[in-house]
């Protein structure tokens, strides 16, 4: 709980974070940037969980525990994504979407 900051404000921030992430995912052309955008989305959710837990339902720790697991999973996700990007980079020497993409409709 931070005095002077209400839950609405934090949730607004997380929502903005979330939409920045979605926007970035759609508009970015670099695989790493896309990955970062995804992380933004995940972080928005993490903050959401913690804040909701802390402000609205402080007697149980469900949201906080949830956020730890999200972080862990996000780490695994990133590790795997980076590994695949490396492999792709080895073959195409690029992490730009338009240069790596060969399969289309």
């Amino acid at each position: 709980m931070i005095p002077g900051i209400s839950i609405t404000e934090i949730l607004t921030v997380t929502s903005i974070l979330f939409f920045i992430g979605v926007y970035g995912f759609i508009t970015r052309t670099n695989l790493i940037s896309i990955l970062i955008s995804v992380e933004l989305i995940l972080n928005a959710s993490v903050i959401n969980f913690v804040v909701i837990n802390k402000y609205l339902y402080p007697d149980m720790l469900q949201g906080v525990v949830y956020s730890i697991f999200i972080i862990a999973v996000a780490a695994a996700e990133t590790a795997l994504a980076i590994a695949i990007i490396f492999n792709l980079y080895k073959q195409t020497s690029s992490v730009e979407v338009k240069e790596t993409e060969t399969m289309k409709y």
């Binding site: 972080i71 780490a75 590790a79 980076i82 590994a83 080895k90």
Partner: peptide, 20 residues
């Protein structure tokens, strides 16, 4: 060299495990 990143990935996994 890819070795650096490999360790970064390994670190990521083990560091998160410390969080648990």
């Amino acid at each position: 060299k890819v070795g650096y990143y490999l360790y970064a990935i390994l670190f990521l996994i083990f560091d998160v495990e410390i969080a648990f």
